[in-house]
Design a protein around this nucleic acid. Sequence first.
DNA 1: CTCAGAATGTTCGGGATCAAATGAACTGTC
DNA 2: GACAGTTCATTTGATCCCGAACATTCTGAG
Lengths: 190, 190
Amino acid sequence: MTGHHTLRETELAIERQLSGAPVRHDAMMAVSNIYRAAAAIRQHFEASVLRGADLTWTAFVVLWVVWIWEEMETRHVAEEAGISKGTLTGVARTLEGRGLLERASHATDGRRVLLRLTDKGHELMRELFPAFNAEEAFVVERLSRSQNQALTESLRTVIEHLEEGGEERRAALRAESPPPPRRSGRRPRG
Amino acid sequence: MTGHHTLRETELAIERQLSGAPVRHDAMMAVSNIYRAAAAIRQHFEASVLRGADLTWTAFVVLWVVWIWEEMETRHVAEEAGISKGTLTGVARTLEGRGLLERASHATDGRRVLLRLTDKGHELMRELFPAFNAEEAFVVERLSRSQNQALTESLRTVIEHLEEGGEERRAALRAESPPPPRRSGRRPRG
DNA sequence: CTCAGAATGTTCGGGATCAAATGAACTGTC
DNA sequence: GACAGTTCATTTGATCCCGAACATTCTGAG
């Protein structure tokens, strides 16, 4: 959308394919821009601050969450980091392999696993976070204080809307047309 | 951030780790919310409209771009879709395998590859896009017209800022401390 | 105490992701 | 016409990503 074509060209191309059916362009642009901005930000960070530590965005976020809360159960880390628990297992494994993170078993519940940073992990975060935050400031550099505020607020509205009403909506859509089994994912044994 | 802890708790925890060094919380919240919103949106779409067609967000975006522009060279598709050309090769392969997309060679340049939808792909997009757009409208449902407008505008500002000033900034940071080789990626032969 | 059900982290399968390396094809220059 | 440099798409390696299946552990009802 930010590529070679102008907005108007894109709109015309859409009309052409849909033979005039109404399209919510405003919603389309908002959603599209949220996604593009997120991708651009992630890419910028991985190519700048995170590059020196050879960390992905996700790996950094996991380290950050664990760093801030000192010690945390994996399911909470996954939720705060916005990834599934299955993904966290893998990310924690690589971070553990690099000596930045360590697992510890829960005192009273044998199922739970606690994550905490190693000394090396602490040291890394202490020097990395200021640089990361400086880059966050760079990202929103062109926005005024009030624009930044409004942006943050609107996005929070969207996030809360999806958290509160999303599941219901998905359930309704599933009821209309039950989805076929996913192509990927673990198969039943036998 | 939208997890169990309040904003204030998080801020205190950050101060604790940084022993009072200044932090740009406003920038942090803005960037964090952009990323969380994008992730929530992607997840909602993959669990609703895209679920029936068993498509990932990326796969849908690629189909969409090709659909709108009828026929397109791969590097332009990658740029419009916001993914690297290496990623596109893989995504196009899976889409081709499902009979939704096809490759065609360029008339005068043997290096280039053109993508276009198959009949099956056209049919899918004709029925899928309206549902997709309806979901986009759902996502921004709680925003007023002017909020939506401002959100879109601010995000565009961020995207353009990164497109225009990002590379220079990354170059400056690389000059300060030349990055070590990446852990992943293809190795030189021999 | 036992045993069914719930909760928790890991494994698995298909796929997406990037940067760097690579090979194929094109473009200019001599 | 050969050849150096450029421009494409593809390959490669390590990682991330999800959801569903799974093994292990805990909990509550009886």
